[in-house]
Amino acid sequence: MTGALLRIYAVLTKEFTQLSRDRITYAMILLMPLVQLLLFGYAINMDPRHLPAAVFSSDHSATANAVVSAMERTSYVDVRYLPRSTDEMDALLRRGQVMLGLTIPPDFTERVLKGDQAQVLVEVDASDPVSAASALGAVAALPDNALDRQLIGAAARPSTSPPFEVVTRRLYNPENITAYNIVPGLLGVILSMTLVMMTAMAVTRERERGTMEALLSTPATPIEIMVGKLTPYVLVGIVQTAVILVVARVLFSVPMAQTAAGWIALTFGVSLFILGNLALGYLISTLAKSQLQAMQMSFFYMMPSIFLSGFAFPFYGLPVWAQYIGNVLPITHFLRIVRGALLKQQTLSDMGPNLLALGLFVLIISTLALWRSRTTLD
């Protein structure tokens, strides 16, 4: 009995020693629960607030200003833009710079004082149904309390008659169909999950088997090796994109880009995203010592990509620090690109900031992967 316990103790000691030497796996064991706790405990919020908004007011009276102030007091929206025309308002909504647009007509105050069916127009970006519902819920109560301090004395109205009406328009997804938001987002998640993991594990597997050393005896340079290894996976990403878009249209009736400019913009965004994921997978393979480590690091990357990108939860529901992290992730910008191209008919000019972010990601990660591969191969 004593001998058996000693042998078990010896094996146990060996396993703990091996685990302590595998620093990446040990770090994952400690960090993964901590990241999950932080994400679910602090970052995830299904009640988004401080949504970016724009106000186009042709009535600069105190009455109109009171409506805007009351809307901001709800804490659901923050007025960040003051467009000077309806065209500017449309552009802000189409580019995703604002989630809500409030338009106040020039005769608003006059109609309020006369009791002549005064109206304001609220347009909301419904490509994110959860955020749109929060914004519309906040503005729906404006007629009941926005003008309490203005309509007093002779200007007071019967309590049963609101001083104005809020006319709402849901843009880009008027029927509030969740699939229009989720299915295009799945394109980004699937490409990230498969391309990063496939590339990381494939290159690591060659290093484990010793075939990578055979490349050292050839005239191929590190950049030539990287390009040669990643090119087949570019084709895999293109095929996956085509299949997902066809399924999205046939099974879920997701709108597609209506113009050649829209398809060009989408193609450009998809290409950058595929290259970025492949470069990241290659970078992971230069850091991992085994396929298990490559898989662990890929999953560690995927968790914030799903939770902090606006795919699973509203992006504006995240705290500010989580939004900063989310804006670093390429999938955040890709989701805006693919949803913009399919739902909003965006073109290259509308996608400028997001395409620039993806381009910078590709450049930085490719440079790091090439530097690491030079170090590893040399």
Results as ranks from 00 to 15, higher is better:
G310H: 02
L142N: 07
T367F: 10
L51G: 11
K289S: 10
D128K: 08
A138C: 11
D87N: 12
V68N: 06
V79E: 08
Y172G: 05
I104N: 02
T194S: 11
Q293F: 00
V338Q: 06
A202E: 07
N176R: 03
T199F: 00
Q291Y: 02
M302H: 06
V250A: 04
L171K: 07
P304D: 09
S309A: 15
Y324C: 09
M193W: 03
L51K: 08
A135I: 08
P222M: 03
V68I: 14
G3A: 15
F299I: 12
G185L: 03
E72K: 09
L275H: 05
P33V: 06
F273N: 02
A70P: 00
A322F: 04
S309Q: 13
T286N: 08
G228N: 02
A214R: 15
S134F: 05
K14N: 06
R336H: 11
L370E: 06
V254N: 00
N277F: 01
T13Q: 11
R111C: 04
Y172K: 04
M302Q: 09
I8D: 10
F164S: 01
I177V: 13
L360N: 01
E213Q: 14
R336F: 05
F315E: 09
F300E: 00
I190K: 02
D22A: 14
P232R: 07
A135K: 03
A154E: 15
D144E: 12
T241N: 07
A202L: 05
R73Q: 11
T194E: 09
S61K: 07
L377P: 01
A126L: 01
A341I: 07
L356V: 15
S309V: 12
I182W: 02
M226H: 04
A312M: 14
A4E: 14
P319E: 10
M201H: 00
E175N: 04
L30T: 15
S61L: 04
L113H: 15
Q97K: 14
Q293N: 02
G101P: 10
L37M: 13
G340Y: 03
L308N: 01
S127D: 11
G269Q: 06
P48Q: 09
V189I: 10
D128T: 10
L292G: 04
S290Q: 03
L30H: 08
T17C: 08
D378P: 06
D47N: 11
M46F: 09
R157T: 10
L275P: 01
I238S: 06
I24T: 12
L370V: 12
V166L: 01
L51V: 14
K229A: 06
V167P: 01
A279W: 06
S373K: 06
L287D: 02
V98M: 07
I152A: 15
L318N: 13
A126M: 03
P33L: 09
Y81Q: 12
T267L: 10
M351E: 13
I44C: 07
R157I: 05
D128M: 08
A156S: 12
M28A: 13
M89Q: 12
R336D: 14
P52A: 11
N176M: 05
Y301A: 05
G96D: 14
V189Y: 00
L275V: 11
M198E: 00
V362Q: 01
R84M: 15
P219W: 08
P163V: 03
V124P: 00
Q293G: 05
